[in-house]
Nucleic acid binder design. Structure first.
Length: 578
DNA sequence: GCCGTTTTCGGCCCGACTGTTTTCAGTCG
């Protein structure tokens, strides 16, 4: 029987934390649930299985109580405390906390005092000026609630922006500010700097000879729709696409402190500060207070911040409290775009691409690649524009011809075959054996139940002519989660068979994600970084696969396509099959 | 609720802002 997925267990712990918060629990207890949820979400093994064995406490942040609650969840299907609290507090209370300035304390207060249990009943009470009758709430609170409701806040969480979009805008804004005569240093901070999948807003930290002039300059940038200054040395704006941006201009001798603080993540900073306190150091965005001397050390660079704490400079992509602050941490040599020597997943006009084999190959040469696999779709991928067996046979000849004409690059004939519901590829073995490369992906029957889906994936992984699995979970950021599959089994099967797993560079995929790519690499699976380009201008999308790889702590050695062609060729499963 | 070079209890990162307050709680990042 397939165990409950970690993400479901994590969601239950998060919800329990929310409920305890509503119930008035002390913040540290609530935080313990959220930390527990994070540990479960990022665990590299089945937490349900661990909990059944009484071993969930091996995870950092899971103690006896959470072990017991997780075990109850996976064995009985429910946590008694969660059932009890859900009965106590109506579901509508949580959505009220989405309103700015309205947190769990005030929601609970309004519920117990006025019976407010939904956005609708809150609106009615505010309009009737009943909120101000509650001790601790006043007319200004009432007005702010009405304004928020009017603006539609609370209806849905604000959508997050894909990193590709956020960086396009953020890098243009940073360039624009750097070009201003008064600017000295200008850096993007926040989750965009950490190359997270998505970002909520942009943070920019700067120094300038004339701070007021630089904050005023934000509004004049072409990317900005509206902006205004916020205090002496700050500005806040919104881009034309609706992305919020905060600019802070700081003293040069504190630039490192501010950049470190606003780069986050929150959990990284909390852990950093907790560790520092044990050494008698107190870290804030303004400096590092040393208990021993009473002096606050200001740092012009981030390197100084980390050095003052006895740490190496930690690349922003690693700042997620995933072990980078553990004793003995050494900065891994992270893979970069320049390390890549080939791309093993792209499309041409033979399926749904926009360019020819020749055009794609020319662009690959321009990027300095030594190899490029042409991997058009197979017949059952479900969107038309596919390559049937006979067409593929002709395509083999066409690619071979192009390859012979070109020097300095191996153009490989490959396929991105759909994985059929039984795990088989779309072409027969004889045809697959004629190819140089085969990547297999799921494009159909997404709703297959977990156990069957896992069996389907493992069958594909065990197929002798399938060299790699493309976008292994099928997720689309902001649109849909991945299909339900046991990635532990997928990774184990890939490791056992020498099948590569892809990090797909489509900016809304980045699939595998950072956590599972790291797990796979640790299990000995070789990772592919691919663009999945459907046009010459999209080969550069491999940048987003690299971003995820760096967040997964991957080194050039972990990534298969950092290797020269002869070495890569020998690593293909088919090189050992034939 | 977790956790231990202040170990089984008593702590738990740091600061800004807002609004309702006579000194602070709640919210946010």
């Amino acid at each position: 029987m397939a165990e409950m997925p970690n993400r479901e267990i994590a969601a239950a712990l998060d919800e329990l934390g929310d409920l305890y918060e509503l119930d008035g629990a002390i913040s540290h207890r609530v935080l313990a649930y959220r930390n527990g949820a994070k540990a479960v979400r990022e665990a590299t093994q089945s937490v349900g299985t661990l909990a059944r064995e009484g071993r969930a406490t091996e995870l950092p942040g899971i103690g006896a109580t959470l072990q017991e609650k997780i075990a109850a969840l996976v064995v009985d299907g429910e946590i008694p405390a969660r059932a009890k609290l859900k009965a106590k507090y109506p579901e509508g209370l949580l959505e009220i906390t989405r309103l700015p300035g309205v947190g769990p304390k005030r929601v609970r207060l309004m519920y117990t005092e006025l019976g407010i249990d939904s956005l609708a009943s809150l609106k009615e009470a505010a309009e009737q000026e009943r909120l101000r009758g509650v001790k601790g709430l006043g007319p200004k609170f009432e007005a702010s609630v009405l304004a928020s409701l009017e603006a539609g806040l609370g209806e849905a969480p604000k959508p997050r922006t894909l990193l590709s979009r956020a960086l396009e805008e953020g890098e243009a804004i940073v360039a624009g500010l750097r070009a201003h005569p008064t600017a000295r240093r200008v850096e993007l901070a926040g989750s965009a700097r950490r190359l997270a999948d998505t970002v909520k807003d942009l943070d920019v930290i700067a120094t300038a000879d004339d701070p007021a002039a630089l904050t005023a300059a934000l509004a004049a940038l072409p990317e900005i729709e509206t902006a205004g200054t916020a205090g002496e040395n700050a500005a806040r704006g919104v881009t034309h696409s609706g992305l919020s941006i905060d600019l802070r201009v700081v003293e040069p001798d504190q630039f490192g402190n501010l950049l470190q603080h606003f780069s986050g993540s929150a959990r990284h900073n909390i852990r950093l500060r907790e560790n520092a306190v044990k050494r008698g150091l107190h870290v804030s965005e303004y400096g590092i207070l040393d208990d021993a001397t009473g002096e606050t050390v200001r740092c012009a660079t981030e390197e100084e911040v980390y050095a003052t704490l006895g740490l190496p400079w930690i690349p922003p992509e690693l700042r997620e409290d995933r072990g980078e602050l553990d004793p003995g941490f050494e900065v891994p040599e992270l893979v970069s775009v320049d390390d890549l020597r080939g791309d093993l997943h792209c499309h041409t006009v033979a399926s749904d691409g926009r360019n020819t084999i020749e055009e794609m190959a020319a662009e690959a040469i321009a990027r300095g690649y030594e190899y490029l696999a042409i991997t058009d779709h197979s017949a059952t991928h479900g969107f038309g524009n596919h390559v049937d067996a006979d067409t593929l046979k002709r395509q083999i000849e066409r690619v071979r011809t192009v390859n012979e004409k070109l020097d300095g690059i191996e153009v490989l004939i490959g396929t991105e075959t759909n994985i059929l519901p039984d795990g088989a590829p779309d072409y027969d073995d004889e045809l697959l054996a004629e190819l140089d490369w085969c990547i297999a992906s799921i494009h159909t029957a997404f709703q297959t139940p977990r156990a069957e889906m896992t069996k389907r994936m493992v069958a594909a992984i065990e197929h002798p002519w399938i060299d790699a699995i493309g976008h292994p979970t099928g997720r689309k950021l902001g649109r849909r989660p991945g299909y339900d599959v046991d990635l532990d089994e997928v990774i184990a099967a890939a490791a056992r068979t020498g099948t590569m797993l892809e990090i797909n560079g489509a900016p809304d995929r980045r699939d595998l994600d950072d956590v599972h790519a790291r797990q796979a690499a640790q299990a000995g699976v070789k990772i592919l970084l691919d663009s999945d380009a459907h046009g010459t201008d999209r080969l550069a999308n491999v940048r987003w696969a690299v971003a995820t790889a760096r967040r997964a702590w991957l080194t050039p050695d972990d990534v298969a396509n950092t290797r020269a062609w002869p070495e890569f060729a020998a690593m293909r499963k088919r090189a050992r099959t034939s």
